[in-house]
């Protein structure tokens, strides 16, 4: 643990943290812009050119709003709720490989905060923990509607975690590794992307990612029509802001995860045929990775402004009766194909 290593990791963590916050911030603007364009209007465009300063205004407004903690609320847990939500949202990005390695002088800097050999499972754990934020917040508010929202969030996230895990198992059978760095490194070029071998798995994973992020069409924990806003009814000021923020950070992290697992991460077609130096490949790779992430974020928003919300029983039916059997079938299929490949080719 020499000093340079610590500094390098510290800088990397800071950059990743800042980037995820900024992306989350501008996702709020992008969401409204996309909503606008899809509904034949402009969206917010008054604060700065094209509304660039809108997130700053919103953030500032959140900070200066009055902060209300209801009299019947359980105060420590009420504060703990959004804290957990934002922390778990932020630490998920630690294992995502943002790019290959940069060589500066004689130091090789890996563009990944840490490469633990169970990276995929780590993200799973963090996501599983995220539901505590919602549950605690919803329960501590001492409000029936927020409790309902919290209970929905918990059961939804548990149900969809199962299908997500099963769809991942099929992927892991192909990649033979749990380390995200290795999984991405296997997918160099274009034809090696995992989406070509695991299209069904990707579809299941995508649906589950929507459910885990509490995004439309699975945003039942905060559905306005039934629950007047769900688990965050009693929240105001920046605590509400943190909940919303954590939702957008989750979206960012899951977009990054999806592009890393299925769409090759920082790999792009013909990356080694252009005769570029390693540093240039890395830099272009990072840009490509972010383009993929933004494409996914756009897709999240696109879906949001297209599909209506599921009913609760439909949600559970889809999760338990369709996605889980499909995921298991996918595992079996993958296994059979792998065996056939190993024995005959």
């Amino acid at each position: 643990m020499e000093l340079a290593f610590v500094i390098e990791k510290f800088v990397l963590v800071t950059i990743v943290f800042v980037i995820s916050l900024v992306v989350a911030m501008y996702s709020t603007l992008a969401e409204r812009k996309v909503a606008g364009f899809m509904q034949d209007r402009f969206g917010p465009d008054r604060a700065g050119p094209f509304g660039i300063l809108q997130p700053l205004c919103d953030g500032g407004k959140f900070f200066f709003k009055e902060e209300i903690i209801p009299a019947g609320a359980h105060k420590p847990l009420f504060i703990l709720g959004p804290t957990i939500a934002i922390i778990t949202a932020c630490i998920g990005s630690a294992v995502i490989p943002w790019g290959q390695s940069l060589t500066i002088g004689d130091r090789i800097i890996e563009l990944q905060v840490t490469d633990i050999n169970v990276g995929v499972l780590y993200i799973f754990g963090v996501v599983a923990l995220g539901v505590y934020g919602i549950m605690l917040g919803g329960w501590a508010s001492n409000n029936k509607f927020s409790l309902m929202g919290a209970v929905r969030a918990a059961s939804q996230s548990i149900s969809y975690e199962l299908a997500m895990g099963l769809s991942l198992i099929a992927l892991l059978m192909v990649t033979q590794s749990l380390s995200l760095r290795e999984i991405v490194a296997q997918q160099s070029g274009f034809v090696n992307w995992n989406i070509w071998v695991q299209p069904l798995g990707f579809l299941i994973f995508l649906v589950c990612a929507f459910a885990e992020c509490n995004r439309v069409p699975f945003d039942l924990p905060e559905c306005e029509t039934e629950l007047i806003g769900g688990y965050n009814v009693e929240y105001s000021s920046m605590k509400l802001g943190l909940y919303m923020f954590s939702e957008y950070i989750n979206m960012f992290v899951s977009s990054a995860l999806m592009s890393a697992l299925y769409f090759g991460g920082y790999n792009f077609p013909f990356m080694y045929d252009l005769g570029l130096s390693q540093n240039w490949i890395t830099i272009i790779g990072v840009i490509v990775f972010f383009v993929k992430i933004f494409a996914f974020i756009f897709f999240f928003m696109w879906i949001r402004w297209t599909l209506p919300r599921f009913r609760y029983d439909q949600l559970m039916n889809l999760g338990w009766k369709m996605l889980i059997p499909l995921a298991i079938a996918n595992i079996v299929l993958t296994g059979v194909i792998t065996i056939i490949k190993d024995t005959f080719f």
Binding site: A128, Y132, A150, V151
Partner: peptide, 26 residues
């Protein structure tokens, strides 16, 4: 034991305790 750690994390903290909490809150 990273694998055990993560599995303990996911299964016990992430799923079982959420269910406990779920029941208690109701």
């Amino acid at each position: 034991a990273q694998f055990l750690a993560v599995v303990n994390f996911i299964v016990y903290m992430g799923a079982i305790m959420v269910l406990f909490l779920f029941v208690l809150m109701l």
